[in-house]
């Protein structure tokens, strides 16, 4: 058996375990986002949305759906890796992997792929739920899919880094609560930055979530408040940097080995 085949077998094992893990606990992983997003659609789409009227040339519910889908993808990709990897560290079964000859790239890709799959699966579930409330055109499937995968990848890597540094279960909820949620809510999910004053629109453009949400919205609706090319470059660069840093953590064994 050559080393590529061995690495593939190890990768397959890791991904299979990760996917089975979140499916086994689907009541905690797959159902809550569907319920939460249904409530968002009902409240912001039907109850409040009908009074807001159009935004960017679309009904309000059509406008918010891409952002809400992306919000679910971001939080679930992050949550999957941070909880899985920290759990492995906490219960010490990460040692099963550390003592094996599997490469650091494979370890990282295995955990991250699990996060990406959960993110995309939750995204698909939320999309199906959204279709009960509104029609969604597909302006550019390539942009839609690529920004979706890239974002899931980026936040899975973010979850991995968070898990490496976490010392207890409180530490794995700090970033989602104090970083991801504010950035997402202020990242143009519920409004167009055209509605903001010039100053606040400028401040908003410092928020990377704005680019992610708008790129995805462009893929579905064909409407974006920012340059989609910039969004791809930004997400791409963040992803490369997060991957490189994750590998650095694995290679040096910081906070993973004594």
């Amino acid at each position: 058996m050559n080393s590529w085949q061995a690495e593939w077998n190890a990768y397959y094992t890791l991904v299979r375990r990760e996917v089975r893990r979140f499916i086994r606990i689907w009541l905690q992983t797959l159902l809550p986002p569907a319920i939460t997003m249904t409530l968002y659609f009902v409240i912001f789409g039907r109850l409040i949305g009908s009074r807001i009227g159009e935004m960017g040339g679309y009904t309000y519910i059509q406008f918010v759906v891409p952002g809400l889908i992306m919000m679910a993808v971001v939080t679930n990709s992050f949550a999957n890796v941070v909880s899985s990897f920290f759990g492995a560290k906490f219960q010490r079964f990460i040692e099963e992997i550390q003592v094996s000859p599997v490469s650091n790239h494979t370890i990282l890709l295995g955990f991250v792929t699990g996060g990406v799959i959960r993110g995309l699966l939750v995204g698909a579930i939320v999309t199906v739920v959204a279709l009960f409330f509104t029609d969604l055109p597909m302006h550019n499937p390539l942009v839609t899919l690529s920004i979706l995968v890239l974002t899931a990848l980026l936040f899975s890597l973010g979850g991995f880094i968070n898990a490496v540094f976490a010392n207890n279960f409180d530490d794995i909820s700090i970033v989602p609560t104090f970083v991801l949620a504010p950035l997402t809510y202020l990242g143009g999910v519920f409004y167009s930055i055209d509605l903001l004053s010039e100053f606040w629109a400028g401040v908003s453009k410092l928020n990377p979530m704005l680019y992610i949400v708008n790129a995805f919205r462009y893929g579905i609706l064909g409407h974006s408040d920012v340059d989609v090319g910039v969004a791809f470059v930004m997400v791409g660069l963040f992803t490369v940097a997060a991957y490189a840093y994750s590998m650095y953590l694995l290679i040096t064994g910081k906070r993973l080995r004594q």
Binding site: M1, S3, Q5, A6, E7, N9, A10, Y12, T13, L14, R16, R17, A88, Q91, R92, F93, E95, E96, I97, S100, P101, V102
Partner: peptide, 26 residues
């Protein structure tokens, strides 16, 4: 010395997964 496996995983999965980490086909 100390138990270091996933307490909620099945016995067969713990052993089979370890084989996978060592590159063995499933």
């Amino acid at each position: 010395q100390e138990f270091n496996f996933h307490q909620f995983e099945k016995v067969i999965d713990i052993v089979t997964n370890q084989a996978g980490y060592y590159g063995l086909p499933r």
